[in-house]
Amino acid sequence: MTTRSDLTYPAHLRLATLKLAAGRTPGELGLNRWTITDHEEVLGHGEDCFREASHRLLTWQAHRRARVHAERFGPLVRLYMGPRMSSCYILLEEQTPTRTVLVYGTLPAHVELGEEAFIIDLAPDGTVTGRVIAFSRHAWWLAKIGAPAARAVQRWANRAYVSGMRPGNFP
């Protein structure tokens, strides 16, 4: 059975993505040798937008925008991009009236080592923002060889995930 202890990065970095999102620096968190990706966009306005964006995230529709198919088995998630499968473990899934958060960490069958957080916020003025923030290192040999291309794919996927949160955007 896969557990949180099977994650492929150090235990002291668990949920560091949320600390990065809150303004802590990579240096403060011991992430200087990790690649940080961070993408945020305004998704729309109002509670209906917030609810729909949250639904799109938590039902994995946002991932489909990045051509990623997700299968969830409790806290275990298998992500498929083409024929390649990557496994993740959900560390946090939380909804409040103004915030939705999903954080997962990588398991041994993932092309990267690290963690990714998906955050949707409803501001007091009604603005809804979507954000994906991650820290990672390449784990798969092909990603290591093609590091610049692999990083470009990561940046593209993060933008697509956020775009996929936007109500009205279909995969």
Score class of each variant (00 low, 15 high):
Met1His: 02
Thr8Cys: 10
Tyr9Ile: 03
Tyr9Asp: 01
Pro10Cys: 08
Ala11Thr: 03
Ala11Asp: 06
Leu13Pro: 00
Arg14Ala: 06
Leu15Trp: 06
Leu15Phe: 13
Ala16Tyr: 06
Thr17Leu: 06
Thr17Asn: 06
Thr17Phe: 01
Lys19Ile: 04
Lys19Cys: 02
Ala22Glu: 13
Gly23Gln: 11
Arg24Glu: 12
Thr25Ser: 14
Glu28Ala: 11
Glu28Met: 01
Glu28Asn: 01
Leu29Ser: 07
Leu29Glu: 00
Leu31Thr: 06
Leu31Cys: 04
Trp34His: 01
Ile36Thr: 11
Thr37Leu: 07
Asp38Arg: 05
Asp38Glu: 10
Glu40Asn: 09
Glu40Pro: 00
Glu41Gln: 15
Gly46Cys: 10
Gly46Ala: 10
Gly46Leu: 11
Glu47Thr: 14
Asp48Trp: 02
Asp48Glu: 13
Asp48Thr: 08
Cys49Phe: 06
Phe50Met: 11
Arg51Glu: 15
Arg51Leu: 07
Glu52Cys: 05
His55Thr: 06
Arg56Tyr: 04
Leu57Ala: 04
Leu58Arg: 07
Leu58Tyr: 07
Thr59Met: 04
Trp60Asn: 05
Gln61Val: 03
His63Phe: 15
His63Ala: 12
His63Glu: 05
Arg64Glu: 14
Ala66Trp: 08
Val68Arg: 00
Arg72Leu: 05
Gly74His: 08
Pro75Thr: 09
Pro75Trp: 00
Leu79His: 10
Leu79Arg: 03
Leu79Lys: 01
Tyr80Gln: 15
Met81Tyr: 09
Gly82Arg: 03
Arg84His: 07
Arg84Gln: 09
Ser86Leu: 01
Ile90Cys: 03
Ile90Val: 15
Ile90Gln: 03
Leu92Lys: 11
Glu94Thr: 10
Pro97His: 08
Arg99Met: 14
Gly105Ile: 00
Gly105Glu: 00
Thr106Ser: 15
Leu107Gly: 08
Pro108Asp: 02
Pro108Tyr: 04
Pro108Phe: 02
Ala109Phe: 07
His110Gly: 07
Val111Ala: 15
Glu112Arg: 12
Glu112Ala: 15
Gly114Gln: 08
Glu115Arg: 06
Glu116His: 05
Ala117Lys: 00
Phe118Ser: 04
Phe118Pro: 01
Phe118Ile: 00
Ile119Val: 15
Ile120Asn: 01
Ile120Trp: 04
Leu122Pro: 09
Ala123Phe: 12
Ala123Leu: 12
Asp125Pro: 01
Asp125Gly: 05
Gly126Thr: 13
Gly126Glu: 03
Val128Trp: 10
Gly130Arg: 04
Val132Lys: 01
Val132Phe: 01
Ser136Glu: 00
Ser136Gly: 03
His138Val: 12
His138Tyr: 03
His138Ala: 14
Ala139His: 14
Trp141Asn: 04
Trp141Ala: 10
Leu142Val: 14
Leu142Asp: 00
Ala143Pro: 02
Lys144Leu: 10
Lys144Ser: 04
Lys144Gly: 03
Gly146Cys: 08
Ala147Tyr: 09
Pro148Thr: 13
Pro148Trp: 13
Ala149Glu: 06
Arg151Gly: 03
Val153Asn: 04
Arg155Lys: 09
Arg155Thr: 09
Ala157Phe: 08
Ala157His: 00
Asn158Asp: 15
Arg159Thr: 09
Ser163Met: 12
Gly164Tyr: 08
Met165Arg: 02
Met165Ser: 07
Arg166Tyr: 02
Arg166Met: 13
Pro167Glu: 13
Gly168Ile: 14
Phe170Ile: 06
